[in-house]
Each structure stands twice: as structure tokens, then as C-alpha cells.
Design a protein around this nucleic acid. Structure first.
Lengths: 332, 332
DNA sequence: AATATTTAGTTAAACGTTTAAGCAAATGGA
DNA sequence: TCCATTTGCTTAAACGTTTAACTAAATATT
């Protein structure tokens, strides 16, 4: 390339990077531009990265890219990253500790400039490691109690409290929460918002008030729990699902049992998914502002990359309650 | 690192890459291993790539990673890529020519070892360019008539023919296809399978037999077409949607109109999506073997990367007709 | 004992950039 | 006219690897 233009390698670099601070004559600029054009020259980013120690790549670690919640977020982050000149590499942890660790290792080995992470349960120790490595990162969707790091999440407690109160306001007295058996704080917050709302309204809370679901056996666990619950003499009159996967599985199950929604059981779901659109009723659900989350995540990460000493920012954005027919008030 | 081990840089490289062809003594090996361990040494892949001209990165270009069809495929390819030591970078074209081109340029600039591409309409010229650049690639889902390249796709014509015949066998006589207004061959094949099946069974085919939908206005186009069709004195008794997006939009619309499915109108959809699970009836749909497609794509691409002169392979895998209630036979 | 071979390791070039430093030539100021 | 400054471009080191080529010591062969 430099050969073709008849100038030095350095001049090519200066011209192509528009380094006007450096002194390059108009003629040389033209020569380089012309040669670059003719040769269809494209600089080698690998070499550039080696020298500059910047890859303009960021890693995104989600639970599963095939989950609509994460694929929608990924899409937003993809667009946002492109705008800022970053390329995205994506990995799915399957909520699995080893996979999670190996992804972080992989991305770190690939010299990503930063990471956007939906951490899995009990990954604190591993996060410490990457803090020591000084790889900039931000949390998304979730966070870890003892890891001080920037992150973006929703007002899980408040919105769950609000959703529960909405059900109560509709005359529901025996509300059951369907949640994962996890200690991830963003999910325990959802449970807490639920129980606190029950308490506030003097509604009974007992062992049967929460269905605890293992992520690896969602359908089976929900089926088993509903079988027990619905044969009880004290049937629930409302179900609150704390994730899209749980809601889809639950609604499917209720359909199979031909439970009348919302007459017999009201339903509120979490997260948005195409699936709700085909349900016989419009589904009441909690909507996370995905675009805002994605944009803010990238913004915060970018800040951290540009200035590693930037302060930790924990951003909480508001989810909204999208009320449909499945949570209609109880008819007397 | 070499310093710490007290050996040369070269020795470190030989040891860490298990280059047993080179002659390294047991002692040196131990020294290097120990030092690497203590320093938590991780080789710099950027430098490695610069030297070896291999990044072990592959680019995946889909229409939209937020579309369940593509996010499911992406997930499979992600896993498969990891198994083979590749990292995946993903981009969404939005069926848009410029975005598609800029993605290819981006990925090529990032020195990917290869590309897995769902090409957009009229991208032939651009594909020629990357063939000249000798970047290995394979097509997925779609292909381009005049571009000779390896690819994996399903038996679009046959399965559409079969699906149509299934509707006909159920007594449907006025079947309408809902398809994108595109010239992408995998989709025109679907249309052709449909029309040929109609012909074979002497069913009328006219302007109203195909609803042509613009990808950017799916809901509106379907709504408009259905309004016209259902007010006709010759109402359709079956709808065949040629993609998941079309099916979801269509089913939603039919629900709104409280059309009786399958009594008044039978429905067959294309592709699998979570959404079908919440429909009031089990949905009849055409199931693509996503795992097979993903695995085969990676296998073919890997072959091309290892041996650029490997022959072009056009692999056609069989989709299957998954019959549910929405295509039940017409009741007299 | 002299030479050939094997073994174990090192040296140095290369990959394709960036960028500090250097060097002429041109220009400016006295 | 002489020196200082500015302008325009080049040189060369560096980024962190891989790998061919080399060296030196140890061992084998005659």
C-alpha cells in the first residue's frame, strides 16, 4: 500500500487516520487516498489492535441468546455498539457457573475492551477476578450483592409490589407467585415486593404462596405445583409469574387445564414476548424498558472504558405495568 | 513471562502450544508451566492472530437476531462454534442492503476466518466482492440464484407442496398463501410449492390466492388483505403463512376478528416459535431442523476455512410438517 | 579420537499497524 | 545573510506472538 502510493508506511497511517495534528501535505494525502482507493485498501484491525491495545470489541454475556428477553436486548446493544464503533461478541451462560466462567475467560483472552454481563448465581468470586484484571464491565438485568460495579436494572421490588397490589385491587385474595429457586438478588427483590404487598393488605402468606421453580425443569415443576394447588380446597385466584419463560409455561399449563382466565385465576406476567400476543386474552405484564437498558449499559461501559477510574453507577430504570385482560377484576 | 521462567520467548511459545515436534526438555517445560501458572499468564490472541493470520472468529449475519428463528439458530451456531474453537460475532441486516454490506465489510475488516450468511435480496453483487476477497462463507436459510457457494437450506418447495396438499386433503378448496413480496429464491420456492399443489388438485389460483406482504408493514398489510378477503363472497377456508412473523401477525389478526379456526379457516404456519404454544389451538407448522442446519453450516464453513479449494456443497435438509389442530379437516 | 548426529535451547525476522523522534528543505525574522 | 522556526515526510521501535534458522552441547558412530 505504502509502496503503491510511493510514500512511507507512516504517512499512510497518518492520512488514513486523519491525523491532522501531524503535518502532511495535500499532495501526499491525495496520493495515499488514491492508492487506497485503487487497491481497495482496508487496514488490518488485528495489527491496529495489537499496537493500540484496543479491540473495539465488547463481550455480552447473557443467560441464553435464544430467550426473547435477551435476544431483544442483544439486538439493541448490537445497534448501540455499532453506533459507537464497537463490535459485539455474544455468549450464553445457561445460568451455568462453569460456562459463565469460561465465557469470561474466553472474552478476556480475546482482549475485549469491556463486558456487559448478566451474572449467574454465585459468580461473585469470579467477578473479583476480572476486577483484578481491570477489564471494564457493567451488569445488566441482574447484579451481585457483594460486587461493587456499575449496572443497569429495573425497580424490581417496586414493580412487583405494584403488580401484586393491582391484583389485590381486583379482588384477588389468594395470589401465588411463580418464581425461580434462586438467590439472584434481582429475583429475590421481585419475591420481596410480592410478599410485602401481601403483608400490607393483610393477606395470608404461607408455603403455598410461592411456587419455586428450577430453571432446568420449568414445565415439570409448574405442572406439579399447579396440580397440587388446583386440587386444594383453597385454590389460588391469581398467579404472578416472575419471568417470561415461567409465564409462557404457566399459561400453557393453565390452558391445558382449561382454567378460566381471568374469571377463576388472574395472571400477571413478567417481560414482554411475542408469545403473549397469541394468548386468548391480552396478557397483563410487566414491561422492562429494554431500549433504555441497552443504551444505558453501553453508555456506562463506554465511560468505564474511556476512564477506568469513572465512578460506579448503579442505574435503576422504571419498568411499567401493562394491564391487559388476564388480570381483570374478580367478578362477584 | 519468558523472563519469569528464565527461558526464551520462543521456548514459552513451544511449550504452551504443546509443540512436541520441537525439542524441549522436561525441565524447561516444567519451568514454563510453573511460571505461566504463577503469573496467571494468558497468551494474547491479537498478537497470535497477527502472526498466524487466523482469528478463530466467525461472523454470523442474520436478518434480525431478535427474531426467534434466528436467535435459535444463533444459539446453536454459538455452541457449535465454541466446540470447534471459534468465537461468534453476530450482526443483523434488517433485510436492508446497506446494512448487509456494511456488516460484511465490518466483519471482513475484523479479519474473521469465515462467514455464515443469510443473504438479503439483491446482494449478489456484494457477494461477488467477498468471493474475490476469498473470505470463506456459507449461506444459511437462504441462497442466491447466481452465486455459487456452499449453503444449507431446507426443501422449501417440497414441504410447501406437502403442507398445501395437507390442507387440500382436509377438504380446503380456497387456500390463500401469505408471503413476503420478495424475490429471495427460498421464499419463491415456497410460493411455487403452493401453487403447484393447487394446480395438481385443479384448484383455482388467482390474484387473491397470494397475499403479498411488505416486511416493513406486516401487521398493516395482513390486516388490509384480510379485511378485503373476509368480506368477499368467496372467503378463503385456509391460510398458509410462509414465516413465523407472518403467522404470528396473521393469527393475532384472525383472533381479533374472532374467526373460527380451524372450522372457518384452517391455518398452517412456517417455523417454530414459542408464540404458537399460547394459541388456543395447537398450531400446525413446518418445522425446520435448526440444530442440523446450524451444525452443518459450521461444518461446511470449517471445511472451507481449512481448505479453500474444497468443493461447493449445497445441502438440503428436510423440514417436517408438524400437524396440530389449526389445520384439522373441514367439518361438513 | 575424530566426526556425525541428536538434543535443547536461543535468535531474529515477521505479521501490519501506530507514533515518537529525527531529518531535510522551505520559510521567516533579524 | 545567517540562524531559528515551521513544514513535510521518513525512520525505526514497539505491540506479543510464531517459527525458520541457528548454535552449542551432548551423545552416538566409526
Amino acid at each position: 500500500m505504502a509502496l503503491k502510493a510511493g510514500v512511507s508506511i507512516a504517512s499512510v497511517s497518518y492520512v488514513l487516520n486523519n491525523r491532522t495534528d501531524s503535518r502532511i501535505g495535500k499532495e501526499t494525502i491525495d496520493k495515499v487516498r488514491k492508492a487506497a482507493d485503487e487497491l481497495n485498501y482496508r487496514p488490518n484491525n488485528i495489527a491496529k489492535s495489537l499496537k493500540t491495545q484496543r479491540t473495539f470489541t465488547i463481550g455480552l454475556i447473557v443467560a441464553d441468546i435464544a430467550n426473547p428477553f435477551f435476544s431483544q436486548i442483544a439486538r439493541i446493544i448490537e445497534d448501540e455498539a455499532k453506533k459507537k464503533g464497537y463490535t459485539l461478541i455474544i455468549g450464553s451462560s445457561d445460568e451455568n457457573n462453569e460456562k459463565f466462567e469460561s465465557l469470561i475467560e474466553l472474552f478476556s483472552d480475546r482482549q475485549v475492551d469491556g463486558l456487559i454481563i448478566a451474572p449467574v448465581e454465585n459468580s461473585e468470586l469470579y467477578m473479583e477476578k476480572i476486577i483484578r484484571q481491570k477489564i471494564p464491565f457493567v451488569f445488566i438485568d441482574r447484579y451481585l450483592e457483594n460486587v461493587k460495579a456499575s449496572g443497569i436494572r429495573i425497580n424490581n421490588y417496586d414493580i412487583s409490589f405494584a403488580a401484586t397490589e393491582h391484583l389485590i385491587a381486583g379482588g384477588r385474595k389468594n395470589i401465588v407467585l411463580v418464581a425461580y429457586n434462586t438467590t439472584l438478588p434481582h429475583l429475590t427483590e421481585r419475591t420481596l415486593g410480592f410478599t410485602d404487598a401481601l403483608k400490607k393488605h393483610d393477606l395470608a402468606f404461607n408455603d403455598a404462596s410461592v411456587i419455586s421453580v428450577n430453571i432446568n425443569s420449568i414445565d415439570a415443576d409448574i405442572d406439579f405445583a399447579l396440580t397440587t394447588l388446583l386440587n386444594d380446597n383453597n385454590k389460588p385466584d391469581a398467579l404472578f409469574f416472575t419471568s417470561n419463560k415461567l409465564a409462557v409455561s404457566g399459561l400453557k399449563n393453565l390452558m391445558k387445564r382449561t382454567v378460566k382466565i381471568p374469571e377463576d385465576i388472574a395472571v400477571i406476567a413478567f417481560d414482554e414476548t411475542e408469545a403473549y400476543e397469541l394468548f386468548s386474552q391480552s396478557v397483563s405484564y410487566i414491561r422492562q424498558p429494554l431500549a433504555e437498558i441497552g443504551k444505558e449499559a453501553l453508555k456506562q461501559l463506554h465511560l468505564k472504558i474511556e476512564d477506568p477510574s469513572a465512578p460506579v453507577a448503579n442505574i435503576v430504570v422504571d419498568a411499567s405495568l401493562h394491564i391487559g385482560q388476564t388480570s381483570n377484576p374478580k367478578t362477584p
